[in-house]
Design a protein around this nucleic acid. Structure first.
Lengths: 215, 215, 215, 215
DNA sequence: CATGAATGAGACTTCATTCAT
DNA sequence: CATGAATGAAGTCTCATTCAT
């Protein structure tokens, strides 16, 4: 997988000094960003949390920006990797989709949600980050697209639309629902929403209710 | 309408000095935030764009935070107002929904999208802003809920779900699709996506295809 | 005279905020540079000496570099201006030259010497500064050239060389002697050196001893 | 020669570790100083140029200051040594002087010129460096003084001045002309200047034109 | 002999804010 | 009503230096 990333050209140019400790600190950077936000994450914050001197952070990552970007990148990267391995290959296409959607709606993934929000926000003004984002997004979409294609071929799904566009809408739902989850809006009812999303998906792919409601 | 806002308790405490000019500058603040982002909008930026001295901005708005919050609030407020008047009262429930969704998907509303992203992002860390957000969000949802309720009563919609939850999902879609629109991801195809969203909505409300496909 | 400078294109682009106080501080910057050297002059040093906050210095001058360059420029500029008015117009060419040389050898002009050394040193690596230096140098040379030309025309000087080149050598002497003066080398004997320089000059211009030895 | 230096008391206290490699690096330090200037020469610069780790440089030279001073010292020292052996002992006094002056005016010695400028500049604030400088300067002057004394004794020169003072002025010229050379001022014409300097010198020592103009 | 890791001191710079006018 | 002057707080960054290997 790493090879793929390298090949994508987004691998960070300089892997600066530091071994395990650097890796550990990087995790902490992610945590701090999730808590304080990208723009408000200072060297000092990370230094406090990690117990590492500010100058050491610079030694590890170069500049503040570099540190933040690497953490953001790494965080999203891992989410995508997790998604890519979130279902068993032998599952039916529908089961795979259900697993993917459930992961996308997972109410426990608060940090992931916050990091995504940070990523979108930061990308909106940073072309380079946006490029990375486009690449990661494409990988995020792929498992969905694959599952739908498999279902269509297998005959269990039927749809007049391009699976790509279906996934665009489906991801739209999953990403859009991150907002009320992260902001903890109280009109957001996990169970009911999940049911409706599943039914919607079933409708889009013309899957019988009996199959779809067991999730 | 203003009364409503006042009643909500979110009206800014001090309506500071400055008449028309203040109003004009406020627009410019919105523009600057949309372009540079909330956190990166400095007094100096607004001063440059508006040609007003920094100290005058402070005179108008109080602190930087006050200025930003007011601009954010105002911007979202206006979007909500626009939404609330985006359909003719005599329209059928389905027509109303279509109008609302079309507004939500409007590819021209780049600035609105960016401001929403800013709002979500800022809200994630500011409880007060989040409270305002919850209130605005509720108002944003209301026209959708009303339309669905009207359709159900009128007999043109049928659904086992609580209209509130349906709207949660529907808004999820609309908000989620803001992301690829703002970030200009190229997998986002307006027309196809619109069609799928409409069909999804029709499916959820058990509206016959013939009606739904005319939009 | 100021017009001339403006016309030369070297006038500093932004005359930043601050009135008299700024001017006063600028003097102090010069003093600090003369004492500590260009590269070692920090905002903090000037702040301490002038009693002005560091941030105010930035407010006045922009950046550290801008502050230093302006001080350097101003300092040399003034020396040139002083030189240009160091003799009475009605003096004989020889008297004018003597006045110019005496000013160049003035043992009291320690600060000027140090600033010149700073200027040369800084110019060696800063093309922009070097351009300013070339311009100032030209103006520095002019009075010497004028005096020699006047003497030649008047018949009191005779030389086979281009006055420009004579001045190059003459200025070489004056500038070269700044070194032992500034470094306080003890082999430097003001009176003897002055006499030799004058005699040298007299020799170059074929002026009779009787005239030259009265200085 | 080395003995002489030791005797002078300026030998660097600790001749630190590192054999040939150290020597090679020292050359590179000189080059870096000539290019970047004394104050702006960092360990990192030398490390980059030499391919030696920063910590190794410290191991070689001690502190940054030590490294810079040693390089400066070495550089000037070598120039002096070169000067001391720049003429053949059997030459006539005038020939010796001409050789010395020609070396002083050598337009190819850009690095030497820059290093001298660095030395003067650094000396202006560092008493210890100034002491070294005074010693080196004295040695620099000696060959000139010797030549003049020899000429006077031999009867080919005649002067009412102390040869020491004549050398002060002569060196003043040579050093002063380094400035336009290093700064590449375009009014500096090597050939014409050389001729004038030679004639000046001939005048000071009462040497007949016929002898002096052959250089 | 040589080096990488880690760090503290010190500098510049940005920016919101206060104050006098 | 509006502004310029002045400043303190806070952050990033550079760099020499110490230490363990």
């Amino acid at each position: 997988m790493d090879t793929k990333v390298e090949a994508s050209g987004f691998a960070l140019s300089r892997r600066r000094a530091g071994g395990e400790r650097r890796e550990k600190v990087l995790r902490q950077v992610i945590a701090v960003i999730a808590e304080r936000g990208y723009d408000r994450t200072r060297f000092a914050d990370v230094a406090t949390v990690s117990g590492v001197a500010v100058s050491t952070l610079q030694f590890y990552f170069g500049s503040r920006e570099d540190m933040l970007v690497e953490a953001l990148h790494r965080s999203i990267e891992e989410e995508v990797l997790a998604l890519e391995s979130s279902y068993r290959p032998e599952s039916s296409p529908w089961e795979r989709l259900v697993a993917l959607v459930d992961r996308g709606l997972d109410p426990a993934a608060q940090i992931t949600g916050k990091m995504l929000l940070e990523f979108w926000h930061a990308s909106a003004r940073d072309p380079q980050l946006r490029a990375v984002g486009a690449y990661l997004c494409q990988r995020y979409r792929q498992p969905f697209i694959d599952a739908i294609r498999a279902g269509v071929e297998h005959g269990s799904f039927r749809t007049a639309d391009d699976p790509e566009d279906v996934v665009t809408v489906l991801n739209g739902i999953l990403e859009g629902l991150i907002i009320p989850r992260v902001l903890e809006h109280d009109y957001y009812h996990v169970q009911q929403v999940r049911k409706i999303v599943m039914r919607t998906l079933a409708g889009l792919l013309d899957v019988s209710e009996s199959v779809s409601t067991d999730g």
